[in-house]
Amino acid sequence: METTTTRANPLIDPQLHIWHGEVALYLFLGGLAAGIMIITGAMRLRDRNAAWSSHLALLSWCAPLLLSLGMFFLWLDLENPFNALRFYATFSWHSPMSWGAWILLLVFPVSILFAWTQTRRSASGRLARFDAWAREREAPLAAWNVAGGVALGLYTGILLASLAARPLWNSALLGPLFLVSGASTGAAFLLLFRLRDDERLALGRLDLFLVAIEIVVVGLWLASLASGGRESRAAVALFLGGPYTVSFWTLVFAVGLATPLAAEWLERRHGVVPGRVAPVLVLIGGLALRWILVSAGQSTGWAIDVALH
C-alpha cells in the first residue's frame, strides 16, 4: 500500500510529537509525589504513635514540593500558558486531564496538612490553634493522603490511557502501572536520604515488593498489547524490535527494574541495610519509563488504509 498526504502540520506530521520532556517530567514528579504521599500516609496509619526520624517527617513535605515542580513543567508545556486558570473555570467529568487538575487542587492541601502534622514545631497564637486543629485530624489526613496519592498516581497513567487514539497508551493497565511505579520511585526517593536503619529496612522491603509488582504489571501490559488488535500489536512492536527496543529494555527494564530487584533482594536476603544504588536505579527507570512512553506512544496511531482492502 502506497500512501501520500499533503498534510505537513508542525508537531503533527510526519508523526505526532506534541509532548516532550516537560510532560514526562511532570508525570514522573507527579508519580513520585503520589508515591511519597501513599507511603508516608500508610506508614502513619499503620502505627499512629511511631516516632519518625526527623528526616522522614521532613520528607513528607517533598510531596507538595515535587508536585509543584511537576506542575511547573506541565505549565511549561502549555502552548497558551496564560489561559492556565481555565482548568479551574469548569469541571469536565469526561476529561481525565480535568480530573487531574482538580485532584491536584485536592492533593495540595491534603499533603500540606499531612506534612504539617508530621513535623515537630512549637506553635503559638493563631498558628497554635491551627496546629491543634490539624493534629486532631492526623488520622483522616493520613487516610486522605493515601487516597490522594492513589488518585494522583492512577491519574498520571489514566491521562495517557484515556487517549484511545494512541494504541500504546490505550490500556487499562497503564493506570496501575504508573501507580505502582510512582509508589516504587517514592520509596526509592525516601531511601536517598539519611533515615534510621529500621525505616530504611522497611522502605527497602516495600520497594522490593513494588518493583516485583511493577515487573508483573509491565509484563501484563506488554502481553495485553501483543495479543490485541492490529494497532496494539504495531504499538508493542516498538519495544520488540522497533526503534524503542534498546532504550526500553536497557533503561526501563534492566536498569530500572531487574537490577534493583536483584540488588534489593540480595540486600534483604543478607540482612543488609539498603544502600542508595538501587534507589537511584529505580528513579532512573521511573523517569525513563515515562519519557519513553510519552515519546513512543505518540508514534502509534490507527491504521490509515480503509478504502482499498
Binding site: 496509619l45 469541571f91 482538580w102 485536592l106 485530624r137 488520622a139 483522616p140 493520613a142 487516610a143 486522605w144
Partner: peptide, 18 residues
C-alpha cells in the same frame, strides 16, 4: 481513622464536584 471524618470530607468534595 475515624469513619465519620472520612464520610464528611468525602461528602464535601463530592458536593464540590457536583
Amino acid at each position: 481513622m475515624n469513619r465519620r471524618d472520612f464520610i464528611r470530607i468525602g461528602a464535601t468534595s463530592a458536593a464540590g464536584v457536583a
